[in-house]
Nucleic acid binder design. Structure first.
Lengths: 267, 267
DNA sequence: CGACGCTTTGAGCCTGGTCAATACGTGTGG
DNA sequence: CCACACGTATTGACCAGGCTCAAAGCGTCG
């Protein structure tokens, strides 16, 4: 399991948990603890594309969908944020995305000015922010790979798997998934229509891979099958694009720069 | 033209030019000037997924494709780097992507250790790296929007437009595009097959929007038409996903945190 | 109970992928 | 100099997955 070989949704894909929040010792965490608490209702927008960035937020309870809207009205959900995740880490003046609660949500608000002040005092914070962003970049790339080339079955299976693993990680039942978001949100996240999402759920149900006690509750019956579906092993056809011998990795390790040799291989 | 409303390929999408390189005054630039020069041949890999990160590179001439390979053998090209662009800015231990020359390429190599040393001395560098990464994140998100929901025509038109604008920006003829990469590279970048890319080129040719003197040279005849095609205005059908009144932006500006008001609106 | 929103299911179509054959361009060898 | 081979690009025929349009369940809230 190397870091980069997952072809289902990585944890990172769904979670925007930042490296910053993983450092309890920082003054950043202290600031968060005393930050003001805010509650927003279902479907309420926390901020919109183009809004001035005023705060960094951490989810306490609930769930937030981060999305952008295209000219034709389509939405692309870039990710969901769950309790513990942070949003609004962008460096720009304005938000690049919309943030909308998919259910009633409580969050802590931290003014960006305070973050900047801390950054000015503590050089390490910039570094940590950089790390956090690097993670988000990786997550976005993963999502892109997913929405780019995978079938509806693979996408939905991977989506469910990510939830199962999230539950497992949080000590909850990995086979009982509560979907906080609507089919529309899921579809816009996976790059599918609500009909296709719904049909795929039904297909999984017919295959006895899952059960759907309610439309927003999924019971995973056959986890292994779900993983197989997500991996796309069902497709026995060899893929053509770049068959492998074409464009063979012919990198020459001896071609490294002189500086490289002394700095990294000389040890 | 706000920063975020472009729905063709933004400059950022194709360019990985970093904020760092835009700062000529920094010691970083000095380091680059004295960095070793390296030449790699067409199709040669500069580095591969999983390789230890040893250097940061800046393209002098040529072009590099950055891509990842999925389990089934498909490639997803995450971007192309052209002269002036920097690659290898990731924070991780290992490279997340493969970097392959699409034509003979010269580049400057800078050991990461040197970057880290500079970062330790200069707190601003971390901040700049953060900015550079934020740009790349934005570019990746743009690309995701493109590959997610747009038709082949829109993708290819947007792709050509990006080249046209790049030329314009560099003082070259915006209507004469030289494509350094193969159809395979383009297809893997846009999430299309080579056949579809080729067919779309032919379609544009038949529409008298472009000419194809050679397979790797595009003459833009009707720039306006190309922009229209890229924008997807050709589709008169109203889109359904999230029709607009559904999920209306009902953000309440009065709900901002107490701290927000004092920090940002009190001025 | 009715209205509304969300989900599910069905039927048909269309875009783009697959398979396959042909054309083009370049480099190599006779 | 031409013949041939190889890699890339183009074009065609066909197929299928997912989108569109449409209608019917289902839950919830007034």
């Amino acid at each position: 399991m190397t870091t980069l070989s997952h072809h289902t949704f990585s944890d990172r894909t769904v979670s925007l948990r930042s490296a910053v929040s993983a450092r309890p010792a920082s003054g950043f965490e202290q600031s968060l603890a005393q930050a003001s608490l805010r509650r927003i209702e279902e479907k309420e927008l926390l901020f919109a594309e183009g809004d001035e960035i005023t705060h960094v937020y951490r989810i306490e309870t609930g769930a937030i969908a981060l999305f952008r809207v295209l000219a034709d009205g389509r939405r692309q959900v870039m990710g969901f944020a769950y309790p513990g995740d942070m949003i609004g880490l962008g460096m720009e003046e304005e938000h690049e995305m919309n943030a909308q609660a998919v259910k009633p949500t409580r969050l802590r608000c931290l003014p960006v000015s305070s973050v900047h002040q801390t950054a000015a005092k503590d050089p390490m914070l910039g570094f940590k922010l950089y790390q956090a962003l690097a993670r988000e970049l990786a997550a976005t790339r993963d999502l892109m790979l997913t929405t780019g080339h995978r079938s509806a079955i693979e996408r939905v299976a991977g989506f469910l798997l990510a939830f199962s693993r999230r539950n497992e990680r949080n000590g909850k039942d990995p086979s009982t998934i509560e979907l906080p978001m609507t089919r529309t949100d899921i579809g816009d996240f996976l790059g599918l229509t609500i009909e296709t999402v719904s049909r795929t759920f039904s297909k999984f149900k017919a295959m006895a891979v899952i059960e759907l006690p309610q439309s927003n509750e999924v019971k995973v019956i056959d986890l292994e099958a779900l993983e197989t579906l997500a991996a796309g092993d069902s497709d026995p056809v060899g893929r053509r694009t770049t068959p492998g011998n074409e464009r063979t990795p012919q990198r020459d390790p001896h071609h490294v720069c002189a500086q490289a040799r002394s700095a990294n291989q000389g040890g």
